[in-house]
Amino acid sequence: MLVMGREVGEVITIGDNIRIKVMAVEGGVVRFGISAPRQVAVHRAEIHKRIKDQALEQEPASGHSA
């Protein structure tokens, strides 16, 4: 894991087309702005987990009876 410090207004770039900008720091909360291509899903970790869990629940059972 890369750990770095950034100040408000500074940007982190991932690859050629993903940018994360520090928008504000208030108390213990940091607000980011994220720019990414539409085909790149960007979610908070808890939302990403919920999406993955729902997808697993919707998968058909893999056991086939013969």
Results as ranks from 00 to 15, higher is better:
Ile20Val: 10
Ile20Lys: 07
Ile20Phe: 03
Ile20Thr: 05
Lys21Pro: 01
Val22Thr: 05
Val22Cys: 08
Val22Leu: 07
Val22Asp: 07
Val22Met: 06
Met23His: 11
Met23Gly: 00
Ala24Lys: 15
Ala24Asp: 02
Ala24Ser: 09
Ala24Met: 09
Val25His: 13
Val25Gln: 12
Val25Pro: 15
Val25Asn: 14
Glu26Ile: 14
Glu26Ser: 13
Glu26Val: 14
Glu26Met: 14
Gly27Val: 10
Gly27Met: 12
Gly28Ile: 04
Gly28Pro: 00
Gly28Glu: 05
Val29Trp: 10
Val29Pro: 05
Val29Met: 13
Val29Leu: 11
Val30Ile: 06
Val30Tyr: 06
Val30Lys: 05
Val30His: 02
Arg31Asn: 11
Arg31Phe: 15
Phe32Cys: 00
Phe32Leu: 11
Phe32Trp: 11
Gly33Asn: 12
Gly33Ile: 09
Gly33Arg: 13
Gly33Tyr: 14
Gly33Thr: 04
Ile34Val: 06
Ile34Met: 04
Ile34Asn: 04
Ser35Trp: 15
Ser35Pro: 01
Ala36Met: 07
Ala36Lys: 07
Pro37Phe: 04
Pro37Gln: 02
Arg38Lys: 15
Arg38Tyr: 07
Arg38Cys: 09
Arg38His: 12
Gln39Asn: 08
Gln39Ile: 08
Gln39Phe: 11
Gln39His: 09
Gln39Pro: 01
Val40Pro: 02
Val40Thr: 13
Val40Leu: 03
Ala41Thr: 08
Ala41Gly: 08
Ala41Glu: 07
Val42Lys: 03
Val42Cys: 10
Val42Phe: 04
Val42Ala: 14
His43Cys: 11
His43Asp: 11
His43Leu: 14
His43Gln: 09
Arg44Asp: 15
Arg44Ala: 15
Arg44Ser: 15
Arg44Gly: 15
Ala45Ile: 03
Glu46Val: 12
Glu46Trp: 06
Glu46Gln: 09
Glu46His: 10
Ile47Glu: 06
His48Trp: 05
His48Asp: 10
His48Tyr: 02
Lys49Ser: 14
Lys49Met: 11
Lys49Cys: 12
Lys49His: 10
Lys49Glu: 13
Lys49Ile: 14
Arg50Val: 00
Arg50Ile: 00
Ile51Thr: 03
Ile51Asn: 01
Ile51Lys: 01
Ile51Leu: 06
Lys52Trp: 10
Lys52Asn: 02
Lys52Val: 12
Lys52Ile: 13
Lys52Gly: 08
Lys52Asp: 07
Asp53Arg: 06
Asp53Ser: 05
Asp53Cys: 01
Asp53Pro: 02
Asp53Phe: 02
Asp53Met: 03
Asp53Lys: 02
Gln54Leu: 07
Gln54Asp: 08
Gln54Asn: 07
Gln54Trp: 00
Gln54Met: 07
Ala55His: 01
Ala55Ile: 00
Leu56His: 01
Leu56Thr: 00
Leu56Asn: 04
Leu56Cys: 00
